[in-house]
């Protein structure tokens, strides 16, 4: 097992969430293949994998592009459970999609049961400034409230596309390292306790 794991670079699992039509697929495809798709074809659930260099380290990113609409809560929970970090997308041209991020956030926190889960609030379609409905201010206020970064992207112009994915991966990587040390720490603690007990006896 350990042998195999060293062969494969670290895998970071990212999930794209957000209402239908906000540009989850468009961002994913731009990041993966440097292309922008004009047509809108609703997604069910697609996954992509890519090898990248993150701060000089070979890693793999696994992107799960989910559906804006999923009827079964239980199924959505299963999607969310598989993620290590989330890009929560809304479209700056559509207020409803911004409102919906609140719900997505709550669901993710419920499922992952972790306030500090790697998470970015992403306002997409920044190229459509003239049709903006959600101000930068209110979006970044919400992000601040959640304690997450807010970034505006455009899948069309590729603005900040790499940034959101890389930033998220860095957070994921940081979390993983952190967890490892916590686990190790805890393990040490346990050992200590045992040892203590032993010495008492």
């Amino acid at each position: 097992m350990a042998k195999k794991a060293t062969v494969q670079p670290a895998l970071h699992k990212v999930i794209m969430v957000g209402s239908g039509g906000v540009g989850k697929s468009a961002l994913t495809l731009q990041f993966m293949y440097d292309e922008f798709v004009e047509d809108y074809e609703p997604t069910k659930a697609d996954s992509y994998r890519k090898k990248i260099l993150l701060d000089g380290e070979d890693v793999q990113i696994d992107i799960l592009d989910t559906a804006g609409q999923e009827d079964y809560a239980a199924i959505r929970d299963n999607y969310f459970r598989s993620g290590e970090g989330f890009l929560c997308i809304f479209s700056i041209t559509e207020d409803e999609s911004f409102q919906a991020t609140q719900e997505f956030r709550e669901q993710i926190l419920r499922v992952k049961n972790d306030e500090n889960i790697p998470f970015l609030l992403v306002g997409n379609k920044s190229d459509l400034e003239d049709r903006r409905k959600v101000t930068f201010q209110e979006a970044s206020d919400r992000a601040k409230q959640w304690g997450v970064p807010y970034v505006e992207t455009s899948a069309k112009t590729r603005e900040h596309v790499d940034k959101v994915f890389y930033d998220l991966m860095r957070e994921i990587r940081a979390r993983k390292i952190e967890e490892k040390t916590v686990n190790n720490g805890r393990g040490k603690d346990k050992n200590k306790k045992k040892k203590l007990k032993c010495t008492i006896l």
Binding site: M32, K44, A45, D46, S47, Y48, R49, K50, L64, Y72, A74, I75, R76, D77, N78, Y79, S82
Partner: peptide
């Protein structure tokens, strides 16, 4: 079926 999350693997090397 009510909790089965299916993912279309579009790209896996």
């Amino acid at each position: 079926l009510g909790s089965l999350a299916v993912v279309n693997v579009k790209d896996l090397g």
